[in-house]
Design a protein around this nucleic acid. Structure first.
Length: 610
RNA sequence: GCCUCGAUAGCUCAGUCGGUAGAGCGCAUCCAUGGUAAGGAUGAGGUCACCGGUUCAAACCCGGUUCGAGGCUCCA
């Protein structure tokens, strides 16, 4: 089935959903919008005081199947705008009426879109199936029997504002998924299961990576010893890649007087999201930093800079604090303490291309190491006057961005006008995870406004003070969000270089010769910086091996009398690290084993020399 | 913030008609000294999220609160 056909099926299902709901709950159900969406469809409906539960979904779904079995034709008809308005009034459909009026006034129903006023004679299309008539742009199947009855499923009911506008009434949105065949539906449902099994909140607890506490508060995760290894290995990778292209570490305090953000403009823009800190000693009003750029700008401004000193590149992996609305917190992906691998590059306008090119290669390297595919979006300004800064500078910067991306080669990119920030054009990186989901993680943004507001300058060759350009860049974005993605990307089977525990030594029993072997192994492991633990608990071997498996430890070795005698270790290597069908256990000497693990640290370094 | 669903032992969850609480894992102790995904026994552990109401009686029914999950972007 083509994607247009599938879209028609999904769209038609939305209408069948509406028809079924009206059959079950009466003519006073009021309808909003019911589009086809990726993998399915939804319909927004207002059922008055009635609230749909999961049981109702099953009933509606059964009714929908009845309608499919009735083989109803979808019949198209047309009305003028005036007639359509009358229809909406006659049928008591206030939401549809609003859509029609919107169309009349704006030529489209899109919120905020511009357009010519439509003549009253302009036609609007309607579709009728059975006794149900609905305002609809079109794109239906011919008959309800054309919809595969075993390949759709209603999945959930949720509240949603009419057209996403929180000043509008809340409606009930019923979601469904739909495919061409039952096999595709099953595959989709299975993917959902897989995603659930990989959920970073579940793995975060099972693998003992991070915790939260009511006493600390929502959106304020704490990292355990294991989670902290993961965090620091990844942060260290980001830091070292940036150091390689000339960035230097700086350090700033986590709070500041609010005046800093008044000057930067962040106070006006982010005011409600800022955590306020009150001094008990003075009358100063402090703020927990929600970003680092103004601080870094102060470091730049602390000296007179020559054009020869440019660029100045600062990096800092540090935590910022933002007060998110309570409904938006969750796991590691939306938190109130956000650790950014933040970088600020203060450069001359003619250096943009080179600097961006360096950053691009760092981003490419790091996602190569994480085994995630990258796509790049170049976001430019459009013709509107919503953008600050000199037009010629914008144009030069945009062309330098593009040149850097093109010359990098070997990377998917697309350009989009109107997506730039008001303060400058940017490059967004979309990374694809193992389940095919895209995440926006890394970003590089030019900023023409902050240097202006803070009057940053350098002395150019001709002796005149010039304005530098500021480039904000992060390779990971936020460590917390990156980890939430990476935990799900790897399903907790971390590569050896980031694995919190690389080697587990399972002791068979207490015995002097075995103890000696374990001590030798520990010494060798320490020498090679191998992260290991010894399991000498009072449990059966099977149970200890199982425990190591559940923690997804890459290397597990059982040590008993046999090993003490031969000096050969039978090593269990995590299945994803050895090729398909390969024997998962291998014989090593102590030295061989530790070198093998250490070599995995070096694998990461190998990529670092671009 | 708003909508839907939920909250019972550290974790995952049962608990029927309203009659005062259960399992597995984990933890502790003991036995067993083990051979590659769960050896055996015993024990500790609960203000059933919180506040109020109905009732002779509430984990269960009703209100409210708090916290958690999903949704509130896909354009008739």
């Amino acid at each position: 089935m083509s994607s247009e056909d599938m879209s028609a099926v999904r769209h038609s299902l939305a209408h069948v959903l509406a028809a079924a709901t009206r059959r079950l709950y009466g003519n006073d159900v009021k309808f909003g919008v019911g589009p086809a969406i990726e993998d399915g469809f939804y319909y927004d409906m207002d059922l008055g005081d009635r609230h749909l539960s999961d049981d109702d979904l099953a009933k509606i779904e059964a009714e929908m199947r009845k309608i499919l079995a009735e083989k109803q034709d979808f019949a198209a008809s047309e009305m003028t705008i005036v007639e359509a308005e009358q229809w909406a009034k006659d049928n008591d459909q206030p939401y549809k009426l609003e859509l029609i009026e919107d169309f009349r006034d704006n030529g489209t129903t899109k919120v905020g879109a511009k357009g010519e006023k439509q003549p009253a004679s302009t036609k609007m299309s309607f579709y009728t199936n059975g006794d149900f008539t609905d305002l609809c742009m079109g794109g239906h199947v011919a008959n309800t029997a054309d919809i595969p009855a075993d390949a759709f499923k209603l999945t959930k009911v949720a509240g949603a504002y009419f057209r996403g506008d929180e000043t509008k009434p809340m409606m009930q949105r019923v979601y469904g998924v739909a495919f061409a065949t039952k096999a595709e539906l099953d595959e989709y449902l299975q993917r959902q299961e897989e995603a659930k099994a990989r959920d970073h909140r579940k793995l975060g607890r099972e693998l003992d990576l991070y915790v939260t506490s009511d006493m600390v508060g929502a959106g304020l995760p704490m990292f355990t010893p294991r989670g902290t290894v993961l965090r620091e290995e990844i942060a260290e990778l980001s830091n070292s890649l940036r150091e390689e292209i000339g960035f230097q570490k700086v350090w700033i305090p986590h709070m500041t007087k609010k005046e800093l953000y008044e000057k930067s403009g962040h106070w006006a823009k982010f005011g409600g999201e800022l955590f306020l800190v009150k001094s008990q000693e003075t009358s100063d009003q402090f703020v927990l930093k929600p970003m680092n750029c103004p601080h870094h700008g102060r470091i730049f401004a602390s000296q007179v800079r020559s054009y020869r000193d440019m660029p100045q590149r600062y990096l800092e992996t540090t935590t910022v604090y933002r007060d998110e609305k309570s409904g938006e917190l969750g796991g590691l992906s939306r938190v109130r303490s956000i650790t950014q691998d933040d970088s600020h590059d203060f450069c001359r306008p003619d250096q943009i291309e080179q600097e961006i090119s360096n950053l691009l290669s760092a981003v490419k390297t790091i996602y190569n190491i994480f085994d995630m595919k990258l796509r790049v979006r170049l976001s430019y300004r459009d013709d509107s006057d919503a953008y600050l800064g000199d037009q010629a500078l914008w144009e030069s910067a945009q062309s330098q961005l593009k040149k850097a991306v093109v010359e990098m080669g070997d990377i998917d990119y697309y350009e989009q006008e109107g997506e730039a920030a008001f303060y400058g054009p940017k490059i967004d990186f979309m990374a694809t995870d193992a389940l095919g989901r895209e995440h926006q993680l890394a970003t590089a943004q030019l900023d023409f406004v902050q240097p202006e507001r803070f009057e940053l300058e350098y002395i150019d060759q001709d002796g005149a003070a010039k304005r530098p350009v500021m480039i904000h860049c992060a390779l990971l974005g936020s460590l917390e969000r990156f980890l939430s993605v990476y935990i799900e990307h790897t399903a907790g089977k971390f590569p050896v270089w980031v694995a919190p525990e690389q080697l587990r030594i399972v002791k068979v029993k207490d015995d002097p010769t075995i103890d000696k072997l374990v001590a030798d192994m520990e010494e060798a492991a320490k020498e090679r910086y191998v992260r290991y633990t010894v399991d000498d608990s009072n449990n059966s071997i099977g149970k200890k091996v199982r425990a190591a498996e559940l923690y997804k430890v890459p290397y597990v070795v059982v040590v008993g009398a046999k090993e003490a005698e031969s000096g050969q270790l039978g090593v269990r290597i995590r299945k994803d690290l050895v090729g398909e069908g390969t024997d998962e256990s291998k014989q090593f000497t102590i030295a061989e084993l530790m070198s093998a693990i250490q070599a995995e640290h070096d694998t990461r370094c190998k990529y670092s020399t671009l």
